[in-house]
Nucleic acid binder design. Structure first.
Lengths: 294, 294
DNA sequence: GCGGTTCTGTGCAAGAGTGCACGGTAAGCG
DNA sequence: CGCTTACCGTGCACTCTTGCACAGAACCGC
């Protein structure tokens, strides 16, 4: 049963009873309608209509087709309504992927978004691997590091994420407080593997200390921060998070090149949809209140 | 939602995940598939697929379309099966229309036909007006009189229906027995209105007797025969029916030009179907046993 | 009875849709 | 790392579908 258009043509003929009427509704010439019917009947090997000068009367087969195609037509109309509406409505799934470090900042944003648009189901994915927007794995991505995006991704800056070099009070009490890079010798550091984390401050750290000074390494950012808090060594933490802990001491004053620029990335196809636009606006609004630079 | 073929194309792409695969299944070039998708998305104003080098991944809208179109595809396959099968199977309705005079002969034929093919529902229509085969009002018609058929009707002779001129014994006892047309004067006759009955014997009767000799006229053949039996006058009856009644006397010997040639008429579109063929064969077989010429 | 109207049916020309070819990209594999 | 494979995307030439015009047939109302 190939060529659904011919079924659609036959449907209108069966519904209206005349070739001319069907041609009007379908917006084609009546000759086209006749040819569609002829082709369909030839392929089915059965007459769908009794032809006479007053029009076309459906046979039993034609009546069967009529009822089936009527249901199909209804289904398609509803489908079109849903699809067109979906572009304009804020509903369905909204998948956001972000770097692990700010998942706790994002969570209240997503909860309030879901609260605002009850018909959406939100999902926040934080994984080491980069989710691919062009495979439809996520609607919105929050990424850091150098902008190395595929084409068809629309990128916009979100926030500047300040990082600072901290140590626990227990560490300073034991090993002292270096006042510049020159005094780093003999100190212990906490850092991520370069292979798994390309944050600018980690790159900087790797370049100014000896590899053997790094006494603790992990892939998970939360694990690294915990190591600093526990006094394992000097390491980078996000400034806003360090500020919450009075037990942490800032080792060096902040530098601009330690900052991470967070980017908001969406696929161009989804970027235009109202749902994504709504979330992007919501996120930007929330981000205004973030105190990320202390 | 016009152009159902594009939906069908999108359906295959959503199902298979690649343009090439869909093109193979659909038997078209992959460029055509791409163009269908593009056109459909443009019309809907929404992306149905995420495009990437490994293929097309359906968006939410695409998945919605997939499930709807899958149901449609199933429906159409079933429909095609029914329609193709219907041409070959003996089922559904079978509508037969015939002249009123032989309805009692036809009834057992139709009952045995329904007995042979339990899936058919038979209907026998006997009405004064001529049912139009080309309007799909009946599958098979049994007609008499001059062959004045529309084109596209296939006509085959069925039986010769003998009619004779009879009177009741009570009539003969009272008015005598005319031995030829010459002795018709002063006799009473029973006949149909010429307007409603064009049977050859009625035409003949009208031509040989005076209008005022016709003392009883009716439109219903059964009423006319009853009038003859009751002695109202001399009139025509079907020979096989008169033979059943010993109280009837044949006034004149039978003449060939009184005979009606019954024709079996079907519309060319329906003539080829197995159901109609089965009934035509069944009817002809039954007609062999009819003793219509006494 | 006879134009007027409303259908269907068909030859012919124009145009839209299709196939083909080639180019480009991404993923898998040894 | 380079080769192979399997995709997608697009300009161009062509085929096939479509639209048009006209013919024909049936029915309706005056």
């Amino acid at each position: 049963m190939d060529n659904w258009d011919e079924i659609r043509t036959a449907f209108q003929v069966a519904r209206l009873g005349t070739v001319s009427g069907a041609a009007d509704v379908l917006g084609v010439h009546h000759a086209t309608v006749i040819r569609h019917i002829d082709a369909l009947e030839k392929r089915l090997g059965t007459k769908l209509f009794q032809r006479h000068a007053r029009g076309y009367t459906p046979t039993e087969a034609g009546q069967d087709l009529l009822s089936v195609a009527q249901a199909t037509d209804d289904q398609f109309i509803q489908l079109a309504g849903r699809i067109k509406g979906r572009g304009e409505s804020v509903s369905g799934e909204l998948i956001v992927t972000s770097i692990a470090g700010i998942a706790d900042l994002l969570t209240p944003v997503m909860i309030s978004f879901q609260d605002k648009w009850p018909e959406v189901r939100v999902r926040l994915l934080t994984d080491m691997r980069i989710f691919r927007l062009d495979y439809g794995e996520a609607h919105v991505a929050i990424r850091a590091g150098v902008a190395q995006e595929e084409q068809d991704n629309v990128v916009q800056p979100l926030v500047r994420l300040r990082a600072g070099l901290y140590a626990a009070r227990s560490y300073v009490d034991r090993f002292g407080h270096p006042r510049s890079e020159a005094e780093f010798e003999g100190h212990r550091f906490v850092s991520a593997d370069l292979a798994t984390n390309r944050a600018p401050f980690h790159r900087w750290l790797r370049s100014v200390v000896q590899p053997e000074q790094i006494v603790y390494a992990a892939t998970e950012p939360a694990a690294l921060e915990q190591a600093v808090v526990d006094g394992a060594g000097i390491g980078f933490m996000l400034a806003f998070r360090a500020a919450e802990n009075p037990d942490l001491i800032e080792i060096l004053p902040p530098r601009e090149d330690w900052d991470s620029l967070l980017r908001l990335v969406t696929h161009v196809d989804l970027h235009r949809t109202r749902k994504v636009q709504a979330f992007v606006a919501h996120l930007k609004e929330a981000a205004k209140d973030w105190k990320l630079c202390r």
